[in-house]
Design a protein around this nucleic acid. Structure first.
Lengths: 343, 343
DNA sequence: TTGTAAGCGTTATCAT
DNA sequence: ATGATAACGCTTACAA
């Protein structure tokens, strides 16, 4: 069972077989401890020996095995990030910013896309804890509350973003959905709209609840009583925006303005109008979320611009602080989106 | 140095301290080997013992340490995916599909966003090989050719997607950029355009080269000689689309149609037109890439629809085959995008 | 059917 | 300043 340790393709420094620290030690004529010291710049090692070791490392293109390192140090240097849609630019702009920060700091991200599916989310969380992630960044489906709290209790840093749980003592970074939605409705009221349609999202998701609530309070404070037929629940998808428009268009008295709880549904609104042959600017829309194309529109579309970049930076900062041992009370950062009126 | 092994918070099955297989073994009154057998459904283990072990596992909420497992089995079960922009829906639609497939098969993805930066890409590759990824999925910057070949030679499965290297014996999954670009130009010629502007991308990137070449050959075969002032090199960003329009608009004889090599630049085209107060439909455009909003346009915008979903599935299939030991010749899959004419 | 123990590639403690 | 060696938490011959 003698393993041949000397089995490397030496020419031009590219091993076809993975080398270990033992091999490097033997080649350099020193012990593995010394190699480790050189690798980690730790402890004492004489200049000459260090150069010699570095030469061997370069010659054989040796790369330390991060898995072994993780096991020994009991640090995976990996972060789990779980979100509902990996193709959604809003989430991915956030994720991108976090990824850059993590990479700088020597961490890597394990991504999981739950597709808003709670069971998949639960599986994902198990999967990630087995990988011994050091932190979890989560935009959740709204389910798996206990599982998430347990993860936090077990010492893994948890940061909820975009969506949160009420009464859970966890770090959260979100946007002020309630206030932004309320302002949006007030904006429409200022423009003298009286029949305002509301398309809100799935009430399992905190953002959808908060936005709905904000819109309702906005109306209420203006003394306007909400007509049930003007409020419709979608599921944050394009299709549900189309359906909402089909519904509104059949009303004897159509809304002159619409508040939409997210960008996908707003896209659906316009697709629906187009399908029905209704002019796109026959209704004034205020929508949550960045619609990239909105700047090209002539339509009366106002947008509640969220700020994924800032969200990402805030999460990144908090994350790194937590990983570096900051053990202060859980934080609750709430960023303020801004309304960009139609032109 | 006696380590206390029995230090778990037993109530309601949520340990605050990570349990190891040894602890489970002790609790269940069996050896670690037996636990391992239960965990992996391998070897023999009697029904009763198995139930007993499973009970302990559930009771303490034991989760095996995937890192230790990886080290022992010399299998990381991780896949590196490196791409130029994590917020680009085209790439992320591909990535999402791959992620789903990998998760099903028990692999996880390590994402790195290079921002088209070759040095960052190179660092990323080192980082990932230290993590002992079993495969690398790469949409490259065009640089680091040797490093990538070395990775492949070292036994890590490499799949290039979207962008490729000529003369490198690696699996690739791409789209037929040349042919699609050629067809696009032919489409414009059929519509009797004679002055066709071309905005192409950075020639370090294979897709940009192929698209440029396709467009040129399209013109050439129609006997049209290209005017230098009608061809401009962008860098695949929105800004470079704006610049291109500024350039074209200053020409005494403006192009009546434009071929654009990617969607971001096309977005820039429209932003540029808008800035200059030129009607958006004063020029006919054919663009590579999915512009989500294009269906809402009245403008004469035709789109070469790429198929990220199919790309993702193709990559996923190939990946899993490779991971399962398929060692056949490297493959070169080329998918065909389709032209969706303006309405 | 079960247990013992070596070993995966590191790091870190303790000698020297 | 350097080396031996015992872990880290698992899997897997091999023994029993």
């Amino acid at each position: 069972m003698e393993k041949r340790l000397n089995d490397f393709d030496v020419k031009d420094g590219s091993p076809l077989t993975k080398m270990t620290i033992k091999d490097v030690a033997r080649e350099a004529g020193v012990s593995t401890a010394t190699i480790s010291r050189v690798l980690n710049n730790s402890g004492y090692v004489s200049h000459d020996v260090k150069q010699q070791v570095l030469a061997v490392i370069r010659k054989f293109n040796y790369q330390p095995n991060a898995i072994a390192r993780s096991l020994k140090q009991e640090k995976s240097r990996s972060i789990g990030i779980v979100l509902p849609d990996m193709a959604n630019p809003y989430f991915m702009k956030i994720a991108r910013t976090i990824q850059h920060r993590c990479f700088q700091e020597g961490y890597h991200l394990l991504f999981i896309d739950t597709e808003e599916n709670p069971e998949k989310e639960s599986e994902a969380l198990d999967f990630l804890t087995e990988k011994r992630i050091e932190a979890l960044i989560l935009a959740g489906t709204g389910a798996n509350r206990d599982q998430i709290q347990t993860i936090s209790d077990s010492g893994i840093h948890v940061i909820l973003f975009d969506r949160r749980f009420s009464n859970l003592k966890l770090d959260t970074v979100t946007e002020d959905n309630f206030y932004a939605a309320k302002s949006a409705v007030e904006y429409l009221l200022e423009k003298k709209h009286e029949r305002i349609g509301i398309i809100h999202g799935p009430q399992t998701i905190s953002t959808a609840r908060e936005r709905r609530q904000g819109a309702l309070i906005g109306l209420e404070e203006a003394g306007i009583s909400l007509l049930p037929e003007l409020m419709i629940e979608g599921d944050y998808t394009r299709e549900s925006g189309i359906k909402a428009i089909q519904h509104f268009s059949q009303l004897p008295d159509r809304p002159t303005a619409i508040f939409s709880s997210n960008n996908e549904m707003t896209f659906g609104i316009y697709l629906g109008l187009q399908e029905l042959g209704i002019p796109l600017d026959s209704v004034e829309v205020v929508s949550f979320g960045d619609l990239e194309f909105s700047s090209l529109f002539q339509h009366k579309l106002s947008v509640i611009m969220q700020n994924p970049q800032e969200l990402g930076e805030t999460i990144g900062d908090l994350l790194i602080r937590r990983l570096n041992g900051d053990d202060d009370a859980k934080e609750n950062r709430i960023l303020m989106p801004r309304l960009v009126p139609s032109r």
